[in-house]
Write a protein that binds this DNA or RNA. Structure first.
Length: 574
RNA sequence: GCGCCUGUAGCUCAGACGGAUAGAGCAACGGACUUCUAAUCCGUGGGUCGGGGGUUCGAAUCCCUCCAGGCGCGCCA
């Protein structure tokens, strides 16, 4: 059953180790900072106090593994040419234990850095050692974060748009967990208001029809077949005992029955999708506990509420909204916004330092007032992040599948899951940034070809597993000390790409963009497939075989951990 | 009308903090399985980054303006 809110930030799974970072980039930054310090101390360069060197990966590989723009950025303050500054830096730079095989000034004043193969090789054993934790980065430092997502009204089954929200929210939560945050997943149930009344009335009318009563079923009621099923449920439970009950009395009974049933169905759908919420928070509880009244009183005491035309208004314009908003109507009823204010106050009272809400893109007109509300409640505006999830265009062989809740002919999440499976659905939902519309082709999602990115990535993983099985049969060592045999450019490039994984995860968390993971995995799989097709792993030269298998093993770890973040399985064979 | 978002190859889209010659997948065309999984790989063509102006040593990225599209603008939920 649904639990009441109140559980605060009690999660204690602190599985994030400290040593979760591939060191190359960090080491480069250390060297650069030390060099700058050295130059400043000896009066060779003026360095602004909070100057931080930028290290990037050049597009052109002839420009080395990394490049820094610091000479370009220091040119202004020093009134000297960037190339001159770059030369000074390079002269003064101490090589940190043979990290670089080449350092040179190029172009307008870039310093290009090439990392020595020996330093790259160290990445592989480190990935092996970190294994399951590779990719975890502790940037959250135990910060309490709540992700509220799906939160569909219990008026019908989840459709595919909710599925996208579910996948995005769940993966976001996984990414935040992997980056040292304590995360709670929450579902907000709008169980108050006219939509719920409409639901109850819809089921009641169908119930009466089942009892043989001739009546018109209005357009304003929910049309889907599931309403008839709910009515049949009531019939089985209660026979005809509500046949002549006055509507005002019967509707709440039907509403509760319908909402409970639908919610149970929603939970099943989410379960099937591998999505689990820690907390199911009922809007009704905010009224029952007096939280809504309390929040309005708080805002009133702070001078953010005024009265006009018999209604109470929240002065959201004081916080950047374009107009003020009603919280209590002239008829005495509170608005949806009022309970939302109370809900967010409640979230902060539960101790969350960051609150993330995923909303359907059609709510975007609501963003400014909610942000205003958060500020009025005395919180920093960035303690609430509102992410908008755009529409999903459901296609079948490129042609749109009609979707309309009203007409009752929508494609449910469950139907999609049954057709294409959990892995494909999750992955495809995350192939685009959430605020851009997504085409979801059912036929493509089922295809077991290269066009389907899910299989592409999973196949790379299965392929490596298959390699390992064969290597074991032939008694080849999977680990050893022959990494220096990896001297092909594509081998070094693959190690380099592997080393970026933690940074991808980190950025994915920092910008709240799960699609970065799917992009990275697709790219990594592609690099590996290409490498595999050009070079034999298992072969007579056992030292070389061992080195290549170590590399493949590290690729497998990154693929597996990345898929794990997406909640997608990493099969051993396909 | 006001506000927010978007505009990158034929299509779908990546490109955090401004960096060197703008990328991927699909589609099109042409190739690679006696050898570790061809659910794979390789090659070819394809672009005034919506137009214009500005800031900068340097702009797809920042600013202004115009154009085109999407969404939002209730004492609804």
């Amino acid at each position: 059953m649904v639990r009441r809110g109140g559980a605060s930030c009690l999660f204690s799974s602190d599985r994030i180790g400290e040593k979760t970072w591939i060191m190359i980039k960090r080491r480069i930054l250390d060297i650069l900072n030390k060099t700058l310090e050295h130059c400043r101390d000896r009066g060779l360069l003026q360095v602004p106090v909070d100057f931080e060197p930028q290290v990037e990966v050049p597009k052109n590989e002839a420009h080395g593994d990394f490049a820094t723009t610091l000479a370009l950025n220091l040119a202004g303050p020093n009134r000297r040419s960037p190339r001159e500054i770059a030369s000074t830096l390079v002269e003064q730079m101490a090589d940190g234990g043979g990290l670089f095989s080449r350092v040179e000034v190029a172009g307008p004043g870039f310093v290009n850095l090439t990392v020595s193969p020996a330093a790259w090789y160290q990445v592989l054993p480190e990935i092996q050692a970190q294994d399951q934790t590779y990719g975890r980065v502790n940037i959250g430092k135990g910060r309490c974060v709540q992700v509220e997502f799906v939160s569909a009204n219990p008026t019908g089954p989840l459709h595919i748009g909710h599925g996208r929200g579910a996948a995005t929210g769940d993966v976001l939560a996984r990414i935040l967990e992997a980056t040292g945050h304590r995360v709670q997943r929450e579902y907000y149930i709008n169980d108050v208001g006219t939509q719920m009344d409409t639901l109850g009335r819809s089921v009641l009318l169908r119930y009466q029809q089942l009892l043989g009563r001739k009546l018109e079923f209005p357009d304003t009621c929910y049309q889907g077949d599931y309403i008839r099923d709910l009515a049949r449920g009531m019939l089985e439970l209660h026979g005809n005992s509500y046949r002549d009950t006055p509507e005002a009395e019967a509707v709440p009974v039907f509403t509760r029955h319908a909402a409970d049933r639908i919610l149970a169905g929603i939970r099943e759908d989410l379960d099937l999708f591998g999505v689990h919420h820690d907390e199911w928070f009922r809007e009704r509880s905010l009224y029952e506990s007096g939280a809504v009244d309390r929040t309005i009183a708080t805002l009133k005491a702070a001078g953010h509420i005024f009265e006009k035309d018999g209604a109470l208004w929240f002065r959201s314009t004081a916080f950047g909204d374009e107009k003020d908003r009603v919280v209590v109507r002239a008829n005495g009823l509170t608005t949806y916004f009022a309970s939302d204010l109370a809900y967010h106050q409640n979230k902060f009272e539960r101790g969350f330092e960051l609150v993330i809400n995923l909303w359907g893109a059609d709510h975007h007109g609501y963003v400014a007032r909610m942000q205003a509300g958060v500020m009025a409640l005395g919180r920093k505006p960035d303690s609430l992040k509102l992410l908008l999830v755009q529409l999903v265009n459901l296609l079948r062989k490129g042609k749109p599948v009609a979707m309309s809740t009203r007409a009752g002919e929508f494609e449910t999440l469950r139907a999609v899951l049954e057709e294409v499976g959990r892995d494909a659905a999750r992955f495809i939902f995350l192939t685009r940034r959430s605020d851009s519309p997504l085409d979801f082709d059912l036929e493509l999602a089922k295809e077991k070809t290269a066009e389907n990115p899910v299989y592409y990535v999973q196949y790379a993983h299965a392929r490596i597993c298959s390699l390992m099985r064969l290597a074991e049969e032939r008694h080849l060592p999977l680990e050893g000390s022959h990494l220096s045999r990896l001297n092909l450019p594509e081998e070094l490039a693959l190690i380099k790409e592997l080393s970026f994984f933690p940074e991808v995860v980190e950025n994915s968390a920092r910008f709240l963009e799960p699609h970065r993971i799917t992009y990275y995995l697709t790219q990594l799989a592609s690099t590996f497939h290409s490498y595999y097709n050009h070079h034999r792993m298992i072969q007579d030269d056992t030292d070389l075989a061992q080195a290549r298998l170590s590399l493949a093993g590290a690729v497998r770890i990154a693929l597996r951990n990345g898929l794990e973040l997406l909640g997608v399985s990493a099969p051993d064979k396909m």
